[in-house]
């Protein structure tokens, strides 16, 4: 087990090196020139040279890449081109906002969607099941953007139930986060319930279900006691891997509702060529993704004794 974890952690090195190389190539060598974006098209050559050396862009590429690798190892990505703020502070602040936007709806959505999928799976093949399936496919056929626009327009603008957009620090943020949260839960329903339902139906075909039934276990007991426990394995995998991306926030939400989270930071950085922000964010998310993947595999082996880690 320990050997496995060490090997997996070592395998993260080539992957993160690959991500670093990819990000570096995309943003440094072929992307738009951040100095041009910052100073506009009419800047004097002296000003351009000065900013270039201040941002370390006048060094040869391999040295810039080595610098980037040093930043990754020390978790210090320097300062934002735009604001001059330290990135660690910027990220910590943004991550807190994004997590308070995405984490509560994410947890609620998992519980809600798993319960709904259980109910639908319990009534499998009935009119109710077919109606629910049809409804979810229809709900999935409307663009995410349309839901945001419609919910914002109807609930916030017409009925004035929530603030249209904006954000305040601390607990006063809550009113601003409710409507985006509702939309996140609503949009997750279609794909998630459908997927969990498939997971449950796969389990229902297993031998242990037949055994449980032939022992005389009632259908609800089979469903909640036996099937739910086994189905938690794929559900767990699906859920845990999604966690690092929560930090990224629902950046469309952040844009529509003017919430200053990581997603908003990222889109602004893309539009202004703020490469330190993009490079730092990408590396953080890539590291988070690798670690949570590993956690999933360990949890997998923990909840399912049939899985051996080697």
């Amino acid at each position: 087990m320990v050997g496995y974890i060490i090997r997996r952690l070592l395998y993260m090195i080539p992957i993160l090196l690959g991500v670093a190389l990819l990000v570096f190539t995309l943003f440094t060598t072929v992307g738009e020139d951040p100095v041009r974006i910052a100073l506009g098209n009419h800047a004097s050559p002296e000003a351009i040279t000065e900013l270039r050396s201040k941002w370390g862009l006048n060094q040869p590429l391999h040295l810039q890449f080595l610098d980037f690798l040093k930043q990754i190892i020390t978790f210090d990505y320097g300062r934002s081109f735009n604001t001059g703020e330290k990135l660690s502070a910027l990220f910590a602040q943004g991550a807190l906002v994004s997590l308070s936007l995405t984490l509560p709806p994410f947890l609620l959505a998992v519980m809600l969607n798993v319960s709904m999928a259980l109910v639908v799976a319990y009534y499998r093949g009935s009119i109710f099941d077919r109606f629910a399936t049809a409804f979810f496919i229809m709900a999935m056929s409307i663009s995410y953007l349309v839901y945001i626009i419609a919910f914002q327009y109807i609930l916030a603008f017409q009925f004035d139930l929530f603030p249209i957009n904006g954000y305040e620090a601390g607990f006063r943020a809550i009113p601003y986060l409710v409507l985006p949260g509702i939309i996140i839960i609503f949009v997750s329903m279609g794909p998630d319930v459908r997927m969990y339902r498939t997971v449950f139906l796969d389990e229902i075909k297993s031998d242990y279900v037949r055994t449980a039934r032939s022992k005389g276990a009632a259908e609800p007991r089979v469903l909640f006691k036996h099937i739910l426990k086994n189905a938690m394995i794929p559900i767990l995998t699906y859920t845990v891997v999604a966690i690092p991306f929560l930090v990224l926030g629902a950046f469309l939400m952040e844009r529509f509702f003017s919430i200053p989270g990581i997603g908003d930071l990222m889109i602004n950085a893309i539009n202004t060529g703020d490469f330190p922000v993009l490079k730092g964010l990408t590396m953080y998310i890539a590291i988070g993704y690798s670690i949570f993947n590993l956690i999933t595999d360990i949890l997998y082996a923990y909840v399912d004794p049939r899985v051996k880690l080697d």
Partner: peptide
């Protein structure tokens, strides 16, 4: 593909 999936899709 491990490298590609480690980076957020839209980014």
């Amino acid at each position: 593909f491990s490298v590609i999936v480690s980076v957020p899709y839209l980014l």
